[in-house]
Amino acid sequence: MKNPTVNLRDLVILVADPNAYARRITNGMLRGFGANKVLEVEQTLSLFQVLTSQKIDILLCDTRLPPHGGLMLTRTIRRNTNNENRTIPILLMSSDTGETTIKNARDAGANMVVAKPMSPSSLYDRLSWIAFNPRPFIDTATYFGPDRRFKIEGYPGGVGRRKGDKLVEVAEEVGPGLAQNDIDNLFSAARKGQPDV
């Protein structure tokens, strides 16, 4: 997929961040992308007041949101069966993007994590990824949230790839290496537990 565009017009976006200046920046970026309905809250209580009074289309939440943090908040939103916003996309914003934090965010039910300080491209590409890569919801006794089994091969805009990454050159395709019959035989043998045909 090449640079899909994200249309944020008329979507209700809730930005939850204890840092007032960071909220202004995020709000500014979103409006720059074309959003016209951006709400802001600075702590969990106000966030729940908004969530219970209106439908939100996406939540952008800082992991340090007082009093208990964005991870706990995400878990609470996902586990509350009476909450109509239970399945909204949740994008966590965190300055700590270590493996543990990412894993915890995933297990809490967040759709994605974006590293702070954010750049317009990092935010845009994550919004784009959420919009264009829908994941099913998984409801089990121990987890409710987007399917955790996914892999990002690179964001649509190219952000996320390392600077030093090089294109892999492969030879031009000259035709199938194996005839379809051979392929079918291989699969059939593998299914029967006879890999060496």
Binding site: N7, D10, G32, P134
Partner: peptide, 26 residues
């Protein structure tokens, strides 16, 4: 998911232009 449905609508500005607008807000 209303976000997925609405965000994919045609009519959005191109990514590069959206990024420029966001940068000017900053």
């Amino acid at each position: 998911n209303r976000f997925e449905r609405m965000a994919r609508r045609p009519g959005a500005v191109a990514r590069e232009q959206a990024l420029e607008h966001a940068q000017s807000k900053i």
